[in-house]
Design a protein around this nucleic acid. Structure first.
Lengths: 118, 118
DNA sequence: CGGTATCCTCTACGATACTG
DNA sequence: CAGTATCGTAGAGGATACCG
């Protein structure tokens, strides 16, 4: 955070260093930000949801997008994919314990958004 | 949230409605998500920061990006631009009261990120 | 049902150079 | 110092069709 601030003889400040690594905010945004990731986590909070249901819940996301985001979330360990039936094929997605740790943030965001946006 | 869930005679569930409007999470993400917006707000929390200093603080963002995000944030009423000197030109950016309302979320995100990421 | 595959568009983002 | 202008690329994301 922040960087080193130098003040010269005339009281002018200069920032010498910066966060060269992406700071925590950016890293966090890459995990749960992006176009659909937060919403997906949010919609999984109560119970496992099937792929097509999730797509509908997101209202307007293409299967491709949902699929991609789910795979990301799965590889990040936030979401768990379960095949619950073979014939016909049925799959659900649910939050892992780690995935649940993000819910507080998402809920703050939701509340903030509902309060201030529009 | 969620949509209407219908359960048929065999106990199978179908989601009938969805959030057709982008849900609050998505709207919120569009306000403070995106590649640099959260970080910019975060870096302005203590005091006004000058344009070039902010660019350095973000560590790797191009002037163009910083400029674009700042204009967005300004038009959204989250950031205030102040010309503090004419010759040489000096400009600072600071948070508005509204901008400050987002800091809690960003701080949760930062904390979460520092706890779980890497 | 739960995806893939293909194609296409659009814009986000970066690099560089320039200006008042 | 605080931007603008210009150009270029990668990939994000959508539409549609198809598959096991």
């Amino acid at each position: 955070m922040g960087g080193v601030v130098q003040t010269d003889a005339r009281g002018r400040k200069t920032v010498l260093d910066a966060c060269t690594e992406p700071c925590a905010i950016e890293k966090g945004m890459r995990m749960i930000g992006g176009k659909w990731k937060g919403s997906i986590l949010w919609h999984l909070q109560d119970e496992p949801v099937r792929f097509n249901d999730l797509t509908r819940l997101l209202g307007g996301a293409s299967k491709k997008m949902v699929d991609q985001r789910l795979k990301e979330l799965e590889s990040e360990g936030m979401v768990l994919r379960k095949v619950i039936n073979d014939r016909p094929v049925a799959v659900t997605y649910e939050l892992t314990d780690f995935g649940r740790t993000a819910l507080d943030i998402l809920d703050s965001l939701r509340e903030w958004s509902e309060t201030y946006i529009e």
